[in-house]
Nucleic acid binder design. Sequence first.
DNA 1: TGACATATATGCGAACCGCACATAAGTAAA
DNA 2: TTTACTTATGTGCGGTTCGCATATATGTCA
Lengths: 244, 244
Amino acid sequence: MDETTHLERYDPSAFERPSVTVDLILMSVIDGVPAVLLMRRDEAPFAARWALPGGFVGIGESLDDAARRVLADKAHMADAYVEQLYTFGAVERDPRMRIISVAYFALLPADRFVAALTATAELSLAELTVPWRGETGGPVEVRVSGDDAVTLAFDHGEMLGLAMGRLRGKLDYSGVAFALLPERFTLRALQDVYEAILDTRLNKPAFRRRMLDRGWLQPTGEREAGTSFRPAELYRYRMPQEEQ
Amino acid sequence: MDETTHLERYDPSAFERPSVTVDLILMSVIDGVPAVLLMRRDEAPFAARWALPGGFVGIGESLDDAARRVLADKAHMADAYVEQLYTFGAVERDPRMRIISVAYFALLPADRFVAALTATAELSLAELTVPWRGETGGPVEVRVSGDDAVTLAFDHGEMLGLAMGRLRGKLDYSGVAFALLPERFTLRALQDVYEAILDTRLNKPAFRRRMLDRGWLQPTGEREAGTSFRPAELYRYRMPQEEQ
DNA sequence: TGACATATATGCGAACCGCACATAAGTAAA
DNA sequence: TTTACTTATGTGCGGTTCGCATATATGTCA
């Protein structure tokens, strides 16, 4: 049997189709700790559990548009770094009905992350602890207000674990770290983001050299303000050619 | 408006839902050239164009199961390395109706790839040329029988480009290369796979050292046969702890 | 003016990589 | 049996990178 031929004669109304949603992993680094925005569910299934914000994909809406719409509706945010993560399609992942969910992660600088948090009553901040080293992957611990680790609704814990692994993996060779920083930032702030994501202490001179040699950083000539010690130079991220 | 609350009261029959398919990028390295299995479409849209094998996701079937089913049905293959790649959800990607497609790529050793090719009349081998360096990403050139490059149906060309980028990216830090080799292989064969995927010449002593120091290779004590010169040692891939 | 804290720069040894070259071990021809 | 030939395998060296220790620079504040 040739299924491609079948596809030609396929009657879409003849077969039951799954629903498709997008779930959003809205991440940042707050005070040196990876954080994510969660919503508390108030109905079954998983009532009172924490979950990722999400929404159904409209029939006339692309996946990316759906992700951006959810970002705008749920977090009142636009212009964030948004990237598709993975699609979760286990049959029983939602006990009510068949739902396939495309997970996206969005990265926000700390200030805009906190702004989204305070502007939106439904959202709560959760801190992440990654119990594994490197990019191995696996589950992460989620704490909502310094309390004990909680278990997320659905497979959202799995999504979060995958997002952290991906973030760690992309940190070194891509510019994702800069999506977590304001437009102008110090090398120390950049290193803080790296250390928070990787959960490691990095060597300062080596880190500086590596970053500066890479050519992605443009000195602004300005210096940070408000320190009681020598202020650091502020840099700007200059997007490398390939990612243009 | 809180959409999570909406979701609770959501009536799945009230909204039109997209169809969901999986498309399979069946790859190998044949005689030092990256290759993929394609099917020729014989109906509109994109009649006579080359396309990736694919199929609809059943309502009671997980995405991974659907990918494995398509692999079994279309290529008469099981036990391949299969990994989800990306989900394509542009609204107009299929002119007939809204179809969201989850792309998977599968890696096969050359012998099993050729076996699938000869056992299945619908499948044709296409050679890939990657016009960009590194892991930049972008479109790849597809040649079906040494002819000029062809344009694939739907967004399948995009899928192929993404697959090559992913493959290049994962080559160094994961064991994907071994999915393209038979169970026992020489270091030269391993290097050939690397060079085909990366489209670069690699330094032999350095490659050997790196691979052996990594600890993933287990010498079998046996040597390759049929050479008219010194036969090389055959190695086996020993899965590293983390991936277990 | 000097204490202090951090930014920024430099120098050194270890690890890694590319490269040239040396040696080993098979086959096949002389 | 010997020798040519081809590839496998091993070794040594210089350049680059990285971790680390240390030195110098530059702000604030007492």
